[in-house]
Design a binder for these strands. Structure first.
Lengths: 244, 244, 244, 244
DNA sequence: GTGGTCTAGACCACA
DNA sequence: GTGGTCTAGACCACT
């Protein structure tokens, strides 16, 4: 009778500067800070993260070495975010080798983002709907722009807005554990994938609009199923790209 | 435009002995180790958790101070798990003060355990079904016994089997992120609640049987909805107890 | 024929960190380190006491829990000695319940400090006399100050200087066993008593001067008897306070 | 201002079996157990000393290796005390190298044993005087015997009685700290010295009688000075032996 | 350059 | 073979 083993697993202590590094990396990946932006000052970061400057410096040093930021000194200086450079071929190779993991990640996104959409349909407020709606408009603009000049900048802008939209829905659902799960699910997959073929999702915004409409109508089932369909679209697009 | 902020949140470095403490507490709470059992030796725990004995000792010291274990020295000695004494009144007070959190926790359980049941219905294997079925039989026996002699031991045995059943389904779903979420959801709620009114769920096993049948039939929708109903039963039992 | 039994008494192994704790407590009680002072760093203490840092930490943890020191981190940090807070009523109660022990302690002080004074009178050196003389001056100043503003700080300063004077004489006697006995005798009694009614010994310094003069003159008998009289003064003051 | 330094001195943890070893050695040296005697059983020793048998065994093993006891097995067996063999030349060499320490030890004995005699003169009871008197008689007998046959056995018997006499006086003084100091002072010096030239103190018992008479008369000053003279006799005998 | 934590290894007392 | 304690050294975070 041991189908379950919540058994003891190795423990690993994580250095504070690694935790900071993670956070900074994520906020850059998820579009919190975008290429060209200036990060908060060392002092501000230290305060925001509730650590000493030493720790912030350690994290920043790594980011600089990786080329994700450059440090400019003097007045007007600071930490400037650089555009990341994903290696498409490498990503493809990794994904092909982990098909099951990719499938599981999408399944999980369908579950938690679907559920988030359903709850959001029950709990949405006018202000929140307006915020989400405004994101759609911005995404349209970014999408148009990115079709014209395929600059990484615009692609990333779209990706940022996309993340903002999905996380916004999760936030409206007002369930902390669920919100964390959504964030987690996106983190697992989206950063590398999004940057590569974000530009391909030309019709993504139509789905977005349908989801938001269902939420606005308070139709939880529809919201959930549309979100699921949207995520599955992405899944199929990715699969096609992998086969190419 | 900031409806979403995956923003920078304070970072807290968690000492290894705290992580170990967590793990040990959980494996005792979730029935991995039961009152009267002997935990693995310090040296074994250290190896299993991949930390030094010092760290294990720090955790053990806390558990001993809390009375969750007693230490026996010499050959044949070790750490003996004690029956925890939950303070029902205290638990009730806390839960009443955190109604929203309790609701969110149940909502989250419905989402992830429902989804797990659905996936399990698609992916179950004969051997796994047999294992789960055997758990039901054991639970029946434990339940009968616990109704006769309301010893804590039997109640805890039921709780352990219950956990084994739910986690077993999550495992059959074969999605790591989902499995983790289920484990997390149960941890958040079940340990204190289960110990208090686990004995009250006299008809819990009927639901369990329905869920397992639906999974065996490959009927994902039914499996999911029955699981949801089962969890909602618990929710209502708890709410009634809180109002009492 | 068994009026004497140096017989076998239970043996107790004393952990190194307890020994360290003792030493630290004593050096604080006896005024070696005074409120506001910084103790040597962990590393230095470890080296001085010839133990590992772990052991020092164990002792320090106790002192911190007891509030005898506070820990400041970072450069310039360290262990800062706090002013102890004696409970006069409690002390009085204890002393009343142990009158015989108090009498014995004073008797013992008379014996060993008297003998120390006699030996000191034979072995004193000019430099030592100057040092002791300088302590008298400082005590005068502290005494005047403490009469004006009865701050605990000044009282403790007097007490510290007093200890320094008495131990200084013991040191001049240059007999290790005797020195230890004097230290021991003072420890047993003086720390709690001194803090409580140290301020009352307004004329203590006159005796001190007489003692020192006798030592300087090389008059061992006079030194011993004056020291004995001085200690008896304290004894009487204490007895009066206990009867009050 | 640092004429005083109750400074921190190195700490050393003493293994339980060493403490046990010490105690056993002392009770044999001080005549508690004499050559030919059987020590209590391992089990009894363990209980008396409040340690495990393992620890007793460790101590016993050392004593056996040193030849201070022999182990006889089976019924009627046990640990049999052997006559110790001091190495006079070695002791002499050590003492010559530590003249100051020897002088200090004697000084300290004069102080504490003198004071003990004075207090004893004030506090003696008839029963106690009788006990002490009886010791004198036994010592006379032992002394006579030892002059005839210079067996180690008789010498040790004298030494044992001598210790009993001195410690008996300290006990009559009824001051715990003082009693400990006397025991300590004797321990420091007497064990090696006594065994070597104990036989030489042929007139020791005259002094003993004078001391006891003074105590019986309640003449504290005389008791103290006679005791001091007695100790100084020993000191001179030792010095003569060292010069020889 | 301070305290905070962990590691790897050792020896000990216990039963 | 268990827990109890110590050592020596290391890295880290804080200020």
């Amino acid at each position: 009778m041991d189908p379950v083993s919540l058994g003891l697993t190795p423990v690993r202590q994580i250095a504070a500067h690694e935790l900071v590094l993670d956070q900074m990396r994520r906020s850059m990946e998820s579009g919190q800070f975008r290429p060209g932006d200036r990060l908060p000052s060392e002092r501000d970061l230290a305060e925001m993260l509730d650590v000493s400057r030493t720790v912030v410096r350690a994290a920043v040093a790594v980011l600089e070495r990786e080329g994700l930021i450059v440090v400019r000194r003097g007045r007007g200086g600071g930490f400037i975010v650089q555009a990341p450079t994903y290696d498409a071929a490498e990503t493809r190779r990794i994904m092909k080798a982990n098909k099951a993991a990719v499938r599981d990640a999408f399944d999980f996104r369908v579950i938690v983002e679907g559920a988030a959409s359903r709850l959001a349909a029950e709990r949405r407020r006018a202000k929140e709907l307006a915020d989400l709606r405004s994101l759609l408009t911005q995404m349209d603009a970014a999408l148009t722009a990115s079709l014209e000049d395929q600059t990484p900048h615009k692609v990333i802008e779209f990706q940022t807005l996309d993340t903002a939209f999905h996380m916004g829905i999760a936030r409206v659902a007002r369930n902390p554990a669920l919100y964390d799960s959504v964030a987690d699910a996106r983190r697992r997959m989206w950063a590398p994938v999004g940057a590569i073929f974000g530009r391909l999702e030309e019709n993504a915004n139509d789905r977005h609009e349908d989801i938001l409409d269902a939420i606005a109508d308070g139709d939880g089932d529809l919201a959930a199923s549309t979100m699921a369909a949207h995520i599955d679209d992405t899944r199929h697009t990715l699969e096609a790209w992998l086969k190419r």
